[in-house]
Amino acid sequence: MITIKSAREIEAMDRAGDFLASIHIGLRDLIKPGLDLWEVEEYVRRRCKEENVLPLQIGVDGQVMDYPYATCCGLNDEVAHAFPRHYILQDGDLLKVDMVLSEPLDKAVLDVSKLDFDNVSAMKQHTQSYSGGLADSCWAYEVGQVSDEVKNLMQVTKECLYIGIEKAVVGNRIGDIGAAIQEHAEKQGYGVVRDLVGHGVGPTMHEEPMVPHYGKAGRGLRLREGMVLTIEPMINTGTWEIDTDMETGWAHKTIDGGLSCQYEHQFVITKGGPIILTSQGEEGTY
């Protein structure tokens, strides 16, 4: 069911978005060659405990296992949902960090600092029952000096994000978003992932409608004021096709070993146009 969000719900998601954006801003200085990738997960966990925020990805239902971490950390050919792990970042790596976080909570209701994030079943009781404001955003980071191939892929993927958001206006259709993204990416010779899409947000992290990053203009659901959506194009240097790690059921990779990049914002559709709830500052300058 598609729900139109109230002003109260949007304000709560805006608070969550402000906190999540501050995490991505902090990662800009943290991510560099020689860093153990696990420190990204530790950084997010520490900030959540300090500011009483629930990492809502912990405990998400999976086909093989529930998701056990606060972040998804995808390297190079990893498309989405890859686990954070002990890996020393190398000069030239392309890293994507995705997360879903609550708004800062009242400690009298729940003291996040006392939760054991490694106890997935116990965490799931909190994350799956949560019904407040939440935010979802992925950002890509270049590690040290990267190749022109990486730079160009990152630039086009970011352009796809904002081109899609520009199409998310009252009266347009879902297909207008995907068609604009697909046209821009494919003109540059890139593949647009089709198995993973954007979505509605609130009261849970994945709501209707689904928002594909490909499609035909003028097709699909008509967009309305008060919808809160994510657009999160995953753009590959080669084919759009991906494979899944069936041992865990989570990590996706490009099927041909090509690079993949992703940027994601969460936003609300208003009469005056889309308003980004996970903004990190002046859009397009970072």
Score class of each variant (00 low, 15 high):
I163S: 11
V192P: 02
S131A: 15
Y130Q: 02
A179Y: 00
G178V: 01
E166K: 15
G133R: 05
G175N: 01
Y162V: 09
I174D: 09
A140Q: 06
E183A: 06
A185S: 02
H206K: 13
Y162P: 14
I165V: 15
W139G: 06
A180I: 04
I163M: 10
G200I: 14
G191P: 03
K167P: 02
S129L: 14
K187W: 05
Q188A: 15
V197F: 10
A180E: 01
G171H: 06
S129P: 05
D148P: 15
Q155T: 11
D176E: 13
V169E: 14
E159L: 08
G175R: 03
G198V: 03
V170Y: 07
V143L: 06
C138I: 08
Q182W: 03
I177Y: 01
G164I: 03
I181F: 01
Y190Q: 02
H206P: 09
L161R: 09
G171V: 07
V193R: 03
W139L: 09
T157C: 15
Q155E: 15
Y141L: 08
D148M: 13
V156Q: 04
E166M: 10
Q155C: 12
M154K: 04
T157E: 13
Q145I: 08
E186Y: 00
A168G: 08
I165P: 09
V146P: 04
G178S: 00
S137A: 13
H184E: 12
E183Q: 12
I174N: 02
T157F: 01
H184G: 09
Q145L: 12
Q188C: 14
C138R: 10
E166S: 14
A179S: 05
D176A: 05
V193H: 03
E142Y: 13
G178F: 01
I181Q: 00
C160Y: 10
I163C: 14
E166D: 14
S137M: 11
N172T: 05
G175S: 05
K167D: 02
Y162H: 12
G171F: 04
S147Q: 07
G178H: 00
E159S: 07
E186M: 10
G133I: 03
E159F: 07
L134Y: 06
V169N: 11
K158D: 10
D148A: 14
N152Y: 00
L134P: 04
L196K: 00
A180T: 02
V193K: 06
G200Q: 09
I177M: 05
E186G: 03
V150M: 01
G200F: 14
A179E: 01
A168V: 03
K167N: 03
V193F: 00
K151W: 11
V146S: 10
K187G: 10
L134W: 13
I165D: 12
A179H: 02
K151H: 13
V170D: 07
G202C: 11
C160D: 05
A135G: 04
A168T: 04
V169W: 09
G132M: 08
I181R: 03
R194S: 01
V156S: 02
V192T: 04
S131E: 12
A185K: 00
V156M: 07
L153D: 04
W139D: 12
Q155H: 11
R173H: 13
D176T: 12
E142V: 09
